[in-house]
Computed example of a mutant assay.
Amino acid sequence: MTVRIAGVAIFVIAALYTWYGQGYTANFGDVLGPSVFPVIVGIPAMILSASLVVFPSGQVDWPDRSHMARQAAALAILVGYAFLLLPLGFPLATFLLIAGLGIVLGGAPLKAALLGAVIAPGLWALFDQVLGLPLAFLGRWFG
């Protein structure tokens, strides 16, 4: 039953992703437009998740509470990143994401913070300066 429930959940998420992604537009990019990517990802995801509902297989062993708590914390960090990206700006929000996930996944806090401090500005420079994709360095709260 767990496999079928997961299949339904993945199907709903893929369908929403495909539906909302169809209306996405951008002034730059591919000739077909950016709305093609959600369709390319969403339709196979819907087909494969429907196959989980129709043909469930395997035995599912649920993780213990500590692993579930870590997964919930990682999900909370990812949702928080989505909400903090505009107010804080890309480098600071990405630093918090990398450091937070590093700690949740069992890394040493100092190493997770150092990794975030190196990777976050590096990613901003790569996307903004090298690839020309505009990302806010400072968020609404700072500028």
Score class of each variant (00 low, 15 high):
M68G: 13
A74I: 01
A74R: 04
P63Q: 05
L48H: 00
I40M: 10
A50L: 00
A76N: 10
V60R: 01
V31T: 10
D64N: 15
A69W: 10
I43F: 06
Y17T: 05
W62D: 04
D64W: 10
T25M: 14
L16A: 10
F28C: 06
F28L: 14
P34M: 07
S35E: 11
F28G: 14
Q22V: 05
L16R: 12
V41L: 10
I43Y: 08
F37T: 08
A69H: 05
F37W: 08
A26S: 11
S57R: 04
V39D: 10
I43Q: 04
P44Y: 00
A50R: 05
A76E: 05
T25W: 10
F28P: 09
S66T: 13
D64V: 09
L48C: 03
M68K: 15
P34R: 10
V31E: 11
A15R: 02
P34E: 07
L16F: 14
V41F: 07
G58A: 05
D64G: 15
V41W: 06
V53S: 05
S51A: 12
S49E: 00
Q71M: 15
Q59G: 04
P38T: 07
T25E: 13
Y17F: 10
G29H: 08
A15M: 06
W62C: 08
G29P: 01
G42Y: 06
T18E: 12
G58E: 05
T18H: 10
V39T: 13
Y20N: 13
A50T: 03
F37C: 12
L48R: 00
V31K: 13
L48M: 05
G58D: 00
